[in-house]
């Protein structure tokens, strides 16, 4: 997995609450059997004026001139500033895949939906929850300042503003550790393989009906 230590990047807005994963990547792109290539279809329905189809080259599609990610000033953004309950709805991991494929490494919002939050960490995308007052202030500063960039230091758990001021944030200790080292969960869990086997053998004796193969 992509490690995350310190990242500095241009900030772009997604200035609405309850951004759902259908919005982040619409269903027709979920037909892909790959993990990559979702970036051009990130926020597809808002970003383009026509209806997107899988397998179609997006470079010739009409862009929505009112959608911030299409503004010149936000090109190359890697930090997304968002509102409450970001990533709600469907469990599709295609949502963080699309954000990462587009170039985002971090989403800052007052709150995140749980499944999206977990999926993000597994793909090197750092969700940072900050108080809504602070998020309001960052939105205002970003709108006022062309080229507004933030630095995120995961080791120290701080967001550093352009004036050097630091905002500390909370992050799950285990997830932080995995991100810093770029570790994937399966390798970590398999270190406990003996514990799993031991649990399983006792468990099977008590609940044998759970262990029959489901013959179709």
């Amino acid at each position: 997995m992509l490690a995350f230590t310190v990242h500095s990047g241009l900030v772009a807005p997604m200035d609405r609450a309850n951004v759902d994963t259908d919005m982040i990547v619409p269903k027709q792109f979920l037909k892909s059997i790959k993990r990559t290539g979702f970036g051009p279809n990130l926020f597809d329905e808002m970003r383009y004026l026509d209806e997107g189809q899988p397998g179609v080259d997006c470079s010739g599609r009409p862009l929505n001139p009112d959608f911030p990610l299409n503004f010149e000033r936000y090109q190359g953004a890697s930090v997304l500033l968002a509102r409450e309950n970001f990533g709600c709805g469907s469990s599709r991991e295609h949502a963080p895949w699309a954000l990462v494929d587009y170039g985002f490494r971090c989403v800052i919002a007052p709150s995140f939906a749980e499944i999206f939050n977990g999926n993000s960490f597994k793909n090197g995308l750092l969700p940072i929850p900050l108080d809504s007052d602070i998020v309001d202030r960052l939105f205002a500063a970003m709108y006022e300042t062309p080229g507004y960039a933030l630095t995120i230091d995961l080791e120290r758990q701080v967001v550093i503003e352009p004036n050097g001021e630091e905002i500390s944030f909370e992050v799950d200790a285990f997830r932080r550790d995995c991100l810093l080292k770029g570790l994937d969960d399966i390798g970590i869990t398999l270190q406990s393989a003996d514990a799993i086997r031991q649990f399983e053998s006792g468990y099977q004796k008590t609940y044998p009906w759970l262990f029959h193969r489901l013959e179709v």
């Binding site: 469907s90 469990s91 991991e93 499944i115 399966i186 869990t189 398999l190 799993i196």
Partner: peptide, 30 residues
């Protein structure tokens, strides 16, 4: 699939997971 919560109706602990966790469950049962 996020609507896995459905099965909680039977008195089970059921929830949706992402694809990385699908792989994790396949590989580790945990």
């Amino acid at each position: 699939d996020s609507h896995t919560s459905t099965h909680g109706a039977l008195g089970a602990l059921a929830h949706g997971i992402g694809t990385s966790e699908v792989e994790h469950v396949l590989a580790t049962q945990c």
